[in-house]
Design a protein around this nucleic acid. Structure first.
Length: 580
RNA sequence: GGUCCCGUGGUGAAGUCUGGAGUUCACGCCGGCCUGUCAAGCCGGAGGUCGCGGGUUCAAGUCCCGUCGGGACCGCCA
């Protein structure tokens, strides 16, 4: 039907008779004998000069046949790649009339209520921004696949109907028709299957895997999302990181045209010390500054005896917040924020030309104040925020404030990838059992140097678990798995899981290991998040063709909908009346 | 489960604090004019359950309570 796309024509095509197909983006009428019709498809826009009276309106689908000609002098549109030419002597065929769209099919729809965009997603996706995102995503997918294949990974598909597993995220359940009362679960990840593929000798597995988790939605979380899931045998951590890095960097290059440098690596401990979070955004400074020793023998009661005292310096030159406008009100609000995050309080110091201004200034000795300024490097106009608490709380509170005060928008600044390694094996304590909880999952290998601490000081044990972080977004995580039963038993023991419990909960998964499990490890990263950052989008919904709203509905299809009673009967289900 | 923000012709906003006739602006839509525009221009017109329900009041878009929808976040996401 068409000889060219709407973004294709250039001066070199002048004289050709061509046919274009697309949607009417805009029509500028100058009386019956002259109208400019901007024809749009996913490649761009071409101006067509129509000199007969044809009724074409916004979003009509048309085929226009005409002759490519140079635009008259002074009428070139430098904003369009096709702006030096136009289509003349146009014959217009209306392929399909269209109602006026509920919102403009251009950049103005960025301002339209997202519910309305989702209700008419097929129109929203017609827009240049969304087409760009869809196509960027496709390039990333393709590059990731190619990079994995190139490294000898074999794509294996795993089932969507799986048994429910005891640990982890809440699952979506699917009732069994043949066995009323029994349910499948939709996979929150292919974790078990990919490890069994290692037992099966697949050696290097990958999959673009759809994962489903029935947890509350966020800007970076949907019920269903895609992971590049991989697992490999006879490897150590370096092998896994290298394989994933290769894939992620190839994806980044495909998306942006620039191959990022090798991905740097920091330990979890260092990430917490310097940035106060386990997913640090390396695009900006404001790192946490150690002050504990400065106050070793302080008179200031709030600092005396604190396990950890740290500070961040918010520079006056700061694109995110304007410190100079900070009055008492904003500073009080910062303190409230710190308390909400878990600090007992927050000490602030405004640095001025002739010293400092702070409610606690009179409690600090001259040498203490001087040392604060030296260590933080604070200059006049800067704001210093200090927290004194347990090491963890101090880091976390300042890390959050650092992000609040300094984190640039996602589309700004360079891409800063970082591997965070040596995550703690255990994190926190289970409210039910009083035992430590697994940091990653219960099959993660403890760090060899720390294995002997497992029974005596479990919370100090590091693991061979790692996260990949990009500009403060957690892209994914992985670990070297335990393949050896004695070690697995020791970890279970710390978790408070007896041999009997383990057999009951994980038997179907662990018994196969007895037939010969190779040492193995793997990783999975979220495609949606990677694509969102590469696309400069704050929200993964912008890179998903048909996403759900925060409450888990789809305004276009109205999903979820009540089930037909006959369907329920067939499944042996009855819906309880809503509790009142 | 919780905190906060938003809901006003098809779209985006102002009006809400401080109650007084559905008032205003821009885009879109319909009609007319218009031969070089390009998010064309000019003239005219249509289009509303101010999310929904209840309350206070002589009077509610505006105040109060509830509810629904959208968004950001906490919890949750091994």
């Amino acid at each position: 039907m068409r000889t060219h796309t709407c973004g294709a024509l250039r001066l070199s095509d002048i004289g050709q008779t061509v046919s274009l197909c697309g949607w009417v983006a805009r029509r500028r009428e100058h009386g019956e004998k002259l109208a400019f019709v901007d024809l749009r498809d996913h490649t761009g826009i071409t101006q067509c000069v129509v000199d007969n009276d044809v009724d074409v309106r916004s979003e009509y689908v048309v085929r226009i046949t005409g002759v490519v000609r140079a635009r008259p002098e002074g009428t070139v549109n430098s904003a369009l790649p096709t702006g030096e030419v136009e289509l003349g002597e146009c014959v217009v065929e209306v392929l399909r009339k269209a109602d006026p769209p509920p919102f403009p099919i251009d950049a103005r729809a960025d301002e339209v209520d997202e519910g309305i965009r989702l209700q008419h997603r097929y129109l929203d996706l017609r827009r240049e921004r969304m087409q760009r995102n869809l196509r960027l995503r496709a390039r990333v997918n393709s590059a990731v696949r190619a990079a994995m294949e190139e490294q000898g990974f074999v794509e294996v598909e795993t089932p969507m109907l799986v048994p429910s597993t005891p640990e982890g995220a809440r699952e979506f359940l699917v009732p069994s028709r043949k066995e009323p009362g029994a349910f499948y679960a939709l996979p929150q990840s292919p974790q078990l299957f990919k490890q069994l593929l290692m037992v099966a000798g697949v050696d290097r597995y990958y999959q673009m895997a759809r994962c489903l988790r029935d947890e509350d939605l966020r800007a970076d979380r949907q019920y269903e999302f895609m992971q590049m899931d991989m697992e490999m045998s006879f490897v150590n951590q370096d092998d896994v990181l290298a394989a994933v890095s290769h894939s992620v960097l190839a994806a980044a290059e495909a998306a942006t045209g620039v191959r990022p440098p090798d991905i740097e690596r920091i330990t979890w401990r260092e990430a917490m010390e310097r940035f106060g979070v386990d997913k640090p955004d390396l695009r900006f400074g404001m790192e946490l500054v150690e002050l504990t020793d400065v106050f070793a023998s302080t008179e200031f009661k709030a600092f005396a005896g604190a396990a950890s005292i740290k500070a961040i310096c918010v520079p006056a030159q700061n694109t995110v917040v304007d410190i100079s406008s900070f009055g008492r009100n904003q500073l009080d609000r910062l303190t409230d924020r710190a308390k909400k995050i878990g600090a007992k309080g927050l000490v602030w110091l405004k640095v001025t030309e002739d010293g400092i201004e702070s409610p606690v200034a009179k409690f600090l000795s001259e040498s203490e104040t001087a040392e604060i300024l030296v260590r933080t490097g604070a200059q006049a106009g800067d704001l210093v925020l200090i927290v004194a608490d347990s090491w963890m709380t101090t880091c976390e509170v300042l890390g959050q404030l650092r992000n609040d005060m300094g984190r640039p928008p996602v589309h700004e600044g360079p891409y800063r990838y970082v591997w965070v390694v040596e995550f703690p094996l255990f994190v926190g304590v289970s409210a039910e059992t009083g035992q430590p909880k697994p940091g990653h999952h219960p099959f993660t290998t403890p760090h060899p140097e720390d294995i002997d601490l497992m029974e005596t000081d479990p919370m100090a044990v590091r693991s061979i678990a790692y996260d990949l972080v990009l500009n403060g977004w957690e892209l994914g995580s992985g670990s070297i798995r335990i393949h050896e039963p004695d070690l697995q038993r020791r970890v279970f023991s710390v978790l408070g899981i007896s041999d009997e419990d383990a057999a009951k909960k994980f038997g179907f998964f662990l018994n196969p290991f007895n037939y010969g499990a190779p040492p193995h490890g793997g990783f999975a990263f979220g495609l949606d998040r990677l694509v969102a950052v590469l696309a400069g989008e704050e929200n993964i919904r912008e890179v998903i063709a048909f996403p759900k709203t925060q409450s888990g509905t789809d305004p276009m299809t109205n999903a979820p909908v009540a089930a037909d009673p006959r369907q329920l009967a067939e499944l042996g289900l009855r819906v309880l009346p809503a509790a009142t």
